[in-house]
Amino acid sequence: MTTQILSVEESATVHAPDPVVSAEPYASAEAIPARHTPTLVTVIPSTSRRRGVPRWIRRPVGPLLLLLLWQIASWSGSTSTELLASPWTVVTTFGDLVSSGDLPKAIAVSLRRAGTGLLLGGSIGIFLALVAGLFRLGEDLIDASVQMIRTVPFVGLIPLFIIWFGIGETPKIGLVAFGVAFPLYLNTYAGIRNVDSSLVEAARTVGLSRLGLIRHVILPGALPNVLVGFRYALGIAWLALIFAEQVNANRGIGQLLNDAQEFQRTDIIVVCLVVYAFLGLTVDAFVRLLERVLLSWRPAFSGA
C-alpha cells in the first residue's frame, strides 16, 4: 500500500507545474493536470497504527503509579501513618485478616445481605414496573405513588427500619431492597414504554395476541433498559449495605469498618474499602457478561 502511494507521489512530481502552461490554465486539456500538484499524504491502516505495548498492560500503569506515589509519601514521612496507612501495611493487614478468617466471614455475610436485598427489592421493582408499564390502570394506581416514595432518601429510613424490624438482619436487607427497587422500577417502566411502536405494529399485523406481543416484543425490547437498571441497582445495593452495616451490626464488612474506626486502624479501613471496590467491580463485570449474552443481537458500539 505504501509503495503504491509513493509511486503516485513520484508520478505527481513528474508533472511539475509548467510556468508556460499554468499561465493559461484553460487553454488545452493537457494544461489542467499541470496546473496544480497536490501534496500527497500517506494514509496508514489502523492495524499498523497501534503502539507496541498492548492496552491491557498500559491501562494498569496509572493506578500503579498512584500506589507508588502513596508508598513513597508514607516512607518519606510526608503523610502521617496515623492518618493513612501505607500501601504495604494495607497489604500485610489484608493477609492477616484473610488468614484469621475475619475478612472472608465478613464478606460472606455482607454478600448474603446484598444478594437477598437485591432479589427482594428487584422482584418488587420489576413486578411493579410490569404492572404499571403494561396496563393503563396499573400505571394510574402505581406510578404516582412510586414516583413520590422514590424521592425519599433511603438512608433517612434507617431509624424507622430499626424501630420496625429491630437490629437483626431484617432492617439491613430491607434497606437494600428499598434502595434497589427504584432504579429497577424506573428503567423497566421506561423500557416498556419506549419499545419501538413500529415493531409493535408489525407484530400486530402478523397476528400476535396481546400475550404474544408482551412475550416476543415488549419484554425483549425492554431488556436493555432492565439491565441498565440492574447495574444502577447493584451500585445502590453496596451503598445501602455500608450504611446499614454501620448501625448496630455485629458481623459484616460494615462492622469491620466501624471497629477499625474505633481503634483508629486506617489499614483495616483501607482494606475494607478496597474489598468494597473489588466486589463492586466483580459484580459489574458479571452484569456486563449478562448483557453480552442476553443482548447478543445488538451490534454494540465498542467505542471509537
Binding site: 413500529s198 415493531l199 405494529e201 408489525a202 407484530a203 399485523t205 402478523v206 397476528g207 400476535l208 404474544g212 416476543h216 416484543v217 425483549p220 425490547g221 431488556l223 443482548l295 443481537w297 445488538r298
Partner: peptide, 24 residues
C-alpha cells in the same frame, strides 16, 4: 392478509427465521 412496510420492521432480538414465523 399480510403487510410489508417501508422499513422492514424485523424484531432485532429474534433471528431472521424466527422473525419470519412470528405469530404463526
Amino acid at each position: 392478509r399480510a403487510v410489508a412496510f417501508q422499513a422492514p420492521r424485523l424484531l432485532p432480538w429474534k433471528r431472521v427465521w424466527r422473525n419470519v414465523v412470528l405469530g404463526l
